[in-house]
């Protein structure tokens, strides 16, 4: 029978890759606000931590940051599954239980973040507990992601694991190959978290200083660990060095350092944009590492392209509508708040 073939991409590969990387960058930015924020607020040198206005602001914002992280994470996961289904699902299946537990953990974390944000003055002392639970959850989720996605780049290893066990109780056993990758992500999150604390606390000397410390020190450590990770790439290190990824690496490092500099001179907008660009560079590098690992085994460019332009155009339209709608609602929100202030003042 002549049934429709599903082995195709509904848009050119580059379109999908660009969307994938950009949404992944946004996901990481939100994740860094959240995870980095929680860590900095928990461990930063605040006097009177739970009464600090910047810390309070963060605690109020964490549930929303969680929402943003998840929402912005859905899109890149969608594109990952579109282009690399064979690798992604296979890796997820051999780690089935750990993978599925991510969602359960995320729900728990989410409610703890809400609990923290709804805490009144009297229950302040619980906040540390709530945020610590959330942090444990973040460690779990991020570690399983690192394990699974690095496993997805090693189809042979997945096959080997599967011949030994089929019950979905294994993480990537080659810990050495991804522990630094994971650490780099977490440290990066702390670094960017430092930036955000400084940004939201720009008028609060204490918060700004805490943020600055984390931003600066975090950046140094993150870079060292990142470098260390490169050396664990083993056999693909050489091809990595010859690939365009090296250029993205240079640009990312330069942008990170630039971000640091402008942060010190309190030009937050420039600093933030540079940080975002460096994040984009990082996800692009990550993308190259994946392609290099899969070289010879799997080439996404081999997919037939059967564009669904009409649907794609509709998507772009809806995307613009979404941005406009969100912008419009935020304006309604602000106007009303301003109006309320005016009313109060007059």
């Amino acid at each position: 029978m002549n049934l429709p073939d599903y082995n195709f991409l509904p848009a050119p590969l580059w379109v999908i890759t660009v969307l994938h990387l950009v949404t992944l960058m946004l996901h990481f930015a939100a994740m860094n606000f959240l995870v980095g924020g929680v860590i900095v607020i928990l461990f930063g040198k605040f006097k009177n931590r739970w009464n600090d206005p910047t810390a309070q602001k963060f605690i109020k914002l964490f549930p929303i940051a969680m929402m943003a992280t998840i929402t912005l994470g859905i899109a890149p996961l969608l594109f990952l599954q579109l282009v690399y289904p064979r690798q992604a699902y296979a890796a997820a299946i051999v780690s089935g239980w750990f993978w599925l537990l991510i969602v359960v953990v995320a729900i728990i974390v989410y409610y703890f973040l809400y609990a923290a944000s709804f805490s009144q003055d009297s229950s302040r002392r619980w906040i540390a507990l709530y945020l610590s639970v959330a942090l444990v959850g973040f460690v779990y989720i991020s570690y399983v992601y690192s394990s699974t996605f690095s496993l997805a780049e090693r189809p042979d290893l997945v096959k080997l694991i599967y011949t030994h066990t089929q019950s979905g109780f294994t993480l990537n056993p080659d810990v050495g190959s991804y522990i630094l990758r994971w650490l780099h992500m977490i440290l990066g999150a702390i670094t960017v978290g430092g930036f955000f604390v400084g940004l939201l606390g720009m008028n609060n000397p204490q918060a700004y200083n805490v943020g600055k410390q984390f931003f600066l020190n975090g950046m140094i450590v993150t870079m060292l660990v990142g470098l260390g990770y490169l050396f664990t790439l083993d056999e693909i290190l050489l091809s990595f060095m010859r690939s365009p990824a090296v250029w993205f690496l240079m640009v990312s490092i330069a942008m990170s350092l630039g971000a640091l500099r402008f942060f010190f001179t309190r030009r937050f907008a420039v600093s933030g944009i540079m940080l975002l660009v460096s994040l984009l560079g990082m996800v692009t590098i990550r993308h190259y590492v994946r392609l290099l690992h899969l070289e010879g085994v799997y080439d996404p460019a081999a997919y037939a392209i059967k564009p669904q332009w009409s649907v794609f155009a509709l998507f772009l339209n809806c995307f613009v509508i979404a941005i406009v709608a969100v912008w419009y609602m935020l304006r309604l929100n602000h106007h009303s708040i301003d109006a309320a202030h005016d009313r109060l003042e007059s």
């Binding site: 599903y6 082995n7 195709f8 991409l9 509904p10 848009a11 969307l19 929303i64 929402m67 929402t71 859905i74 899109a75 969608l78 594109f79 599954q81 579109l82 289904p85 699902y89 669904q308 649907v311 794609f312 509709l314 998507f315 809806c318 995307f319 509508i321 979404a322 709608a325 969100v326 609602m329 935020l330 309604l332 929100n333």
Partner: peptide
């Protein structure tokens, strides 16, 4: 895999509504 290849833009559209929905709910 079949669903995602056929419907990825459908899901992408749903995702844009989802963004609006969540922002609106919070506000």
């Amino acid at each position: 895999e079949v669903l995602i290849h056929n419907f990825v833009w459908g899901w992408a559209i749903e995702w844009t509504f989802f963004i609006i929905e969540l922002c609106a709910a919070i506000l």
